[in-house]
Design a protein around this nucleic acid. Structure first.
Lengths: 356, 356
DNA sequence: CTGAAAGCGCTAACAT
DNA sequence: ATGTTAGCGCTTTCAG
């Protein structure tokens, strides 16, 4: 087999500033100034500068960024902490959630010339070690369902850290947080149904809502339905997903507009409706929350309140950088408005009225 | 607003080995040996070791990994180079390709305790700089459609680098490569159709196939159809996607089994078939190549030859690590077998015969 | 068994 | 305008 290699450099066999300096007949300090010095710092004669540049070019010199960062006591790198047990998230499977979030985070990080690192030490066994081993300038932590263990870990974290999906108060204002405006999102959904002519609206929620955001959505429904002056939305709390929904849909209390606490409840509603011969959206309109890609796969596709996840990831980096540059800056909370993606699962209530 | 911070450490305000040494009444060398020394190296009295450990514990000492790596002239970090123009790939949108590949790469990297870094310098403007600035121990490069610019860049790369979707010969055996077995994949597809009773088989390909893998698939069809003893598969080369396919399907040369050069051609075939009232799979069976998630979204879902992308990412890291540890090791080529995901677009040819 | 010295590549501060 | 010194945190080498 034709085999050409040995072209790969051995560790530490790179050209350094010293080499360049030697060739240019100066010291490495001059090289540093010429090649990387801030304009103000460069007090070097034009001739020397030229010689240095030529020498660097000839030798194919490349700055060693790690040495540079090490010297500067920074890493220009941020880490991602995954909430649930800090296990490793997957890009390709699961809820698609991580992919979208990551895109935002990377986008934000790149704007500040920060690298984003997926680190086994951080994403597996012992985050508490890697969290503080000099690897990162800052961390992004996201979790929809906090638990006592990681709550404490996050609270005690001494590194610049930004938390996605939380209120600053939850973490004693120790770290900046970013969260979507669940109340305004619910308002979007309710408004949409009202505008379509629905007067009786139900909110379907999971049985136990440990996740803060789910709680907020539930509260918002209460508050907003009063404000909107619509019949106070009936709150269907699910004990047994399938059965509860079917019972509700069969009852005479059935609403014409249904709001879901999150998209994941849609299949239960769809299936129960199908069993009962209730058509979506002709007989009942359904609005989800989160507007995951999953919505597009449902038949009919699911109208859903959108959480601008990617944007949140991006903005999170703004907060983080602020914190890195000024560790004693205020731990701000950023609230991002929700949108509404109208799809096939909602329609006007008029037709229904006519044919009833 | 209740505000508690100032808890975030300033840069470089960490406990170092020096601090631990001072408290334990030894030097940092001893600390290093006790805390990080390989078992063989630790020639320290039990008492001292104990004191050091206690001191470290009391001070909350954490090793600074970057300093450690810097000293060891390594980074324990690999970078990902995206082929086409080296632009930044997105996780959430696009072909899903990147997500799957990344999962494999990360899986592989984590097995070696390597971090995977997404770096703006690498993924944007000037990869040629970041490629060699001391940031990475090695690089993964993937591209389905190489161009002269990045071909040269890759050829001249002095870092350990592994290439996904290429033959080692294309890069003069300078870097290890990994590629799926396109010929065997085509064989899978043809076999499947033959076993279903199809005797006349067509291969539909794109007009210009700059991508190496597409070429390989085409060649494989020629070679394998002979081997299989089936009527030599007709090769429909598309000049104009829609028209060519429709013309072909309308002609009396129409096959009952169609093999596609890649999944992306399926919609054209589906639509042309629909226009002509040709049913899939009743009248014609269709097999794609790549088995992208897209296959599931088609109606009927598309049977497709699968490329184990995630596994390829994982194996790529094996090759890369081999290269990092031994730069003058052989630039191997790894060929990974394809699978076949049977879905709804293929069925037995028997029914068709009966009712004809 | 422990310590002193040296240095990875780079740069800020202080000489000259 | 250029050089010298010093040190980021760590570990290897060599002396005691």
């Amino acid at each position: 087999m034709n085999q050409a290699n040995g072209l790969i450099k051995k560790k530490g066999s790179n050209i350094t500033m010293k080499d360049v300096a030697a060739r240019a007949g100066v010291t490495s300090v001059v090289v540093s100034k010429v090649l990387h010095g801030k304009a103000s710092n460069v007090r070097v004669s034009a001739g020397t500068a030229e010689r240095v540049k030529i020498a660097a070019e000839e030798l194919g010199y490349r700055v060693n960024v790690w040495a540079q960062n090490f010297r500067n006591q920074e890493t220009k790198t941020i880490g991602i902490l995954h909430g649930i047990g800090f296990g490793r998230p997957l890009f390709s499977s699961g809820s698609h959630y991580f992919s979208v979030l990551m895109d935002g985070i990377v986008e934000g990080a790149f704007a500040y010339d920060l690298s984003v690192t997926l680190c086994p030490k951080l994403l597996q066994d012992n985050p508490e070690v890697a969290i503080n081993d000099g690897r990162f300038d800052g961390l992004v932590w996201y979790s929809t369902t906090p638990n006592p263990v990681n709550h404490r870990l996050v609270l005690e974290c001494q590194m610049p850290l930004v938390i996605i999906h939380a209120h600053a108060a939850q973490y004693e204002y120790r770290h900046p947080t970013i969260i979507c405006d669940n109340r305004q999102g619910i308002r979007n959904g309710l408004n949409h149904l009202v505008e379509l002519g629905h007067e009786k609206i139900a909110f379907i929620s999971v049985p136990s809502d440990s996740a803060l955001e789910l709680q907020e959505r539930a509260h918002a429904v209460q508050a907003e339905s009063e404000t909107l002056g619509i019949e106070k939305a009936e709150w269907v709390k699910l004990a047994d997903y399938d059965r509860s929904i079917e019972e509700y849909l069969r009852s005479n209390r059935r609403a014409t507009g249904i709001l879901l606490q999150h998209d994941g409840l849609a299949p239960y509603v769809y299936q129960a409706a199908a069993r009962l011969g209730i058509r979506i959206p002709e007989d009942v309109s359904v609005v989800g929350f989160d507007s995951t890609p999953f919505c597009e796969q449902l038949r009919p596709s699911l109208t859903s309140i959108s959480q601008p996840l990617s944007l949140m990831g991006e903005k999170a980096i703004d907060l983080l950088v602020e914190r890195i540059n000024n560790p004693s800056s205020l731990a701000r909370e950023l609230v991002i408005p929700c949108g509404l993606d109208v799809r096939e699962s909602t329609s006007s209530n008029v037709a229904q009225v006519i044919y009833q």
